[in-house]
């Protein structure tokens, strides 16, 4: 399953972490890649709709009107739903929840997973055993299934979905962080830092982590797209946010009832999800090339 190889060669490591000069070099490389430009345009659109949703959307996404199930027109760009709510406004507002859940879950997941992986790899022994047995257990299942299991345990609702998705994705980060530590632990500069009396925390945060960042960044990008898909899926199944909140998954779920009369309800929200995921995947691809992170499995599990 999804695995990013985590044994960079020393030449790559010598270049080191993320200096501002390299940042500019990467930005230049990013702009040369057509796929990257497309992805940046998509993501920019998405971020702008999320931030300025109330300004962009022509109607209140929750206000009902008597124009029920209207097909797309100049008045309602993407039509209206069964309660007369404007679909375009709802999709624009939906970007907020999708982006918020995608980014926040991956942030939590990254912090937890990387911490667990660093501890396991650095200290080894029983701690490594304990952490990795759990990570292996979770690894045996697709992330989405783990998220469903956790929602089954914690209950439904937006907060629980965020907790569930965060926990469901941490195994990817833990495995990457652990194998990076195992590799970097033997590097001379780490050994040097240790022999100079640097504390474990200092070694891990200042010497190991910066050099492990590239594969973690690539994984985080990929994970955001899968986290957005997972949130949409859970909302679609009715396990996520409460009804009336405009999220892409929920709009699609409601659309099923009116599928024979209102095709637009079934088409546009899903298109928004696909475009978002496509944009993030393109970005992930570009980052992988630029940061020179090799992949073994090629495949990410959902």
């Amino acid at each position: 399953m999804a695995q990013i190889t985590t044994e960079p060669n020393s030449a790559e490591l010598a270049e080191g972490g993320l200096s501002p000069r390299q940042g500019r070099r990467w930005l230049r490389l990013l702009m040369q890649d057509k796929k990257a430009v497309v992805s940046l345009i998509i993501l920019l659109m998405l971020i702008i709709s999320a931030i300025f949703a109330p300004l962009i959307s022509p109607y209140d996404p929750t206000s009902m009107a008597f124009d029920m199930l209207q097909s797309p027109s100049l008045e309602h760009l993407l039509g209206t739903d069964d309660l007369g709510r404007d679909l375009f406004s709802r999709i624009v507002h939906g970007a907020r929840i999708s982006l918020f859940v995608g980014v926040s879950t991956v942030a939590i997941s990254l912090i937890l997973g990387v911490t667990l992986g660093l501890l396991a790899g650095y200290y080894g022994g029983w701690l490594d055993n304990l952490i990795m047995r759990y990570i292996d257990l979770q690894w045996a299942f697709p992330n989405f299934i783990i998220a469903v299991y956790l929602v089954a345990i914690f209950g439904t609702g937006l907060e629980n979905v965020i907790i569930a998705v965060s926990l469901a994705f941490l195994d990817d980060f833990a495995r990457i962080a652990r194998s990076m530590v195992l590799f970097l632990k033997e590097e001379e500069y780490v050994i040097a830092a240790r022999s100079l009396g640097a504390s474990d925390a200092r070694v891990l945060i200042w010497h190991v982590l910066p050099n492990a960042l590239a594969p973690i960044i690539v994984q985080a990008t990929v994970s955001i797209s899968y986290a957005i898909l997972a949130e949409a899926g859970l909302s679609f199944l009715g396990l996520g946010v409460k009804a009336s909140t405009p999220t892409w998954g929920l709009i699609l779920s409601d659309a099923r009832t009116f599928i024979s009369r209102a095709w637009w309800l079934g088409v546009f929200p899903g298109f928004a999800i696909m475009l978002t995921v496509l944009g993030i995947n393109f970005l992930g691809d570009t980052l992988r090339d630029i940061l020179d992170v090799r992949e073994t499995g090629e495949v990410s599990k959902r």
């Binding site: 699609l252 088409v267 899903g270 999800i273």
Partner: peptide, 28 residues
């Protein structure tokens, strides 16, 4: 790339719209 980025439940809805509702070839 499209296939990987498309949520499966959305594809399911699209298939229902085309083949079950409009063409009526298959049960929804």
């Amino acid at each position: 790339f499209l296939g990987l980025s498309m949520p499966d439940f959305w594809l399911a809805i699209l298939l229902i719209i085309v083949f079950a509702v409009n063409l009526q070839w298959l049960p929804a």
